[in-house]
Design a protein around this nucleic acid. Structure first.
Length: 266
DNA sequence: ATGGTAGGTGGCCTA
């Protein structure tokens, strides 16, 4: 199974680019974040033409996540499961996670809240959101299951996952509570399969800010991730980052994130 | 120390 995660920063703007990329890369499953589309505005037919089923969870304006699959798409579920509500303080009205079973794997496409700033209420929302993700994992799965959570986590797990840790003093994405929330997912049993494959290598990023020429200066962050349960992670054959997709090409303007693709012998 | 850019929206917010 060839599985891709990609924060497209508006599927409305990016659709031609995404369709072209699908034809070139031929993923079995493509998980998107930041579609910024209302539920009814999702271009389901465009993906169906290429042989893919899809499940979108959108609210328009902001957020929006999708799973697009040519290896089946069963038991879709939008948002967090109701039975984990009691484990957290609040319902989540934002369209940030969608689940489906594709090719025998229980998959989630997730767009973790950004956090904005440490003193912003959105930061504590981010931490609670991650807590609830862990709670749902615990409530519904065991580590022996084939479970994969992919998406934009808005967390750089280690210092080498940003271009210069000193530039992040007092900033979100690298704080201890965020990294603790990340570790809680890893402690449950999920594996960061990019890190599994690339060991100690740093300087490999999935996101570059549009501002200040960050991409051209190679100043990025590794914040998009593929987390797999042990039975799936063991079957990783390769994982690759399409950095070229971050470049402008002719008519195409890029997302600020690059697609990350893992292949599993499934 | 600030701003730089991109996208959606509607007379700024989010990233």
């Amino acid at each position: 199974m060839k599985l891709t995660t990609w924060n497209v920063n508006s599927l409305n703007v990016r659709l031609p680019y995404v369709l072209e990329w699908i034809e070139l890369a031929q993923p079995d499953v493509l998980c998107l974040q930041e579609t910024k589309l209302a539920q009814e505005a999702f271009p389901e037919a465009e993906f169906a033409t290429l042989g893919y089923e899809s499940q979108h969870y959108g609210q328009g304006r902001w957020n929006g996540v999708a799973i697009i699959s040519k290896v089946g798409l069963e038991n879709p579920s939008l948002g967090f499961a109701p039975d984990t509500l009691q484990l957290c303080e609040e319902a989540d009205g934002e369209a940030r996670i969608v689940w489906a079973t594709c090719g025998g794997v229980r998959l989630a496409s997730a767009y973790v809240p950004n956090g904005r700033a440490i003193d912003n209420p959105h930061y504590s929302y981010k931490l609670r959101w991650l807590q609830r993700l862990r709670a749902q994992l615990e409530a519904q799965h065991t580590v022996a299951d084939d479970v994969v959570i992919v998406g934009d986590f808005n967390i750089a797990p280690e210092d080498r996952d940003v271009w210069n840790i000193d530039a992040f003093e007092g900033k979100t994405h690298v704080t201890e509570p965020e990294r603790d929330s990340w570790m809680a997912l890893c402690d449950w049993g999920l594996k960061d399969v990019f890190r599994q494959r690339y060991g100690d290598i740093g300087g490999l990023y999935t996101y570059w800010d549009y501002q200040a020429g960050r991409f051209h200066k190679r100043e990025g962050m590794r914040i998009d991730h593929i987390l797999a349960s042990p039975p799936v992670a063991q079957r990783l054959t390769w994982i690759t980052l399409d950095r070229n997709a971050r470049k402008s090409r002719g008519e195409h303007k890029p997302s600020d994130h690059a697609p990350l693709t893992a292949n599993f012998a499934l």
